[in-house]
């Protein structure tokens, strides 16, 4: 087995273990771990099953099989980044709504305080 293959097998196994640990300790939410798991397993599969990787590389016209592995990895990372951007957009929309509510509620509190003070002074 070439060193490159051994390294990528060990690497993907470590990544999977780290992912499991992160989800187990609740530092990573299940919903955000799915894409990472999917990519780690694809990577592991391609590392183990060399013939498939060779076939895939041949299909894409890539002479050097490990380069196909890199391509898969880059596509995977790209997808994850895109997913993060979508999540961030959603979060910023929620953050905006929460901030607006805080502004509106603060005004209400101020009004109620003023009203209470005027009542208590009388």
């Amino acid at each position: 087995m070439p060193i490159f293959q051994a390294l990528s097998i060990i690497g993907s196994l470590i990544i999977i273990l780290v992912l499991v640990e992160l989800v187990k300790s609740r530092r990573l939410k299940e919903s955000y771990s799915l894409l990472w798991f999917a990519i780690a397993f694809v990577f592991l599969l391609l590392s183990l099953w060399r013939d498939f990787l060779e076939w895939l590389a041949g299909l894409m016209g890539i002479g050097y099989a490990p380069a196909a592995l890199f391509l898969v990895l880059i596509i995977g990372l790209y997808l994850i980044s895109l997913h993060f951007s979508v999540v961030i957009s959603r979060l910023s929309e929620k953050n905006k709504n929460v901030s607006q509510e805080i502004g509106l509620l603060n005004l209400e509190i101020k009004k109620i305080k003023k009203w209470l003070q005027s009542k208590l002074n009388i």
């Binding site: 905006k96 901030s99 607006q100 805080i102 502004g103 509106l104 603060n106 005004l107």
Partner: peptide
Amino acid sequence: ATVITLPHNLGIGGAVQTGFKYAEI
């Protein structure tokens, strides 16, 4: 004037929409 202070800068759109929400309430 009535003043609403947003906890951080939301950009003009976020500020205007706050006013729209106030109008609705």
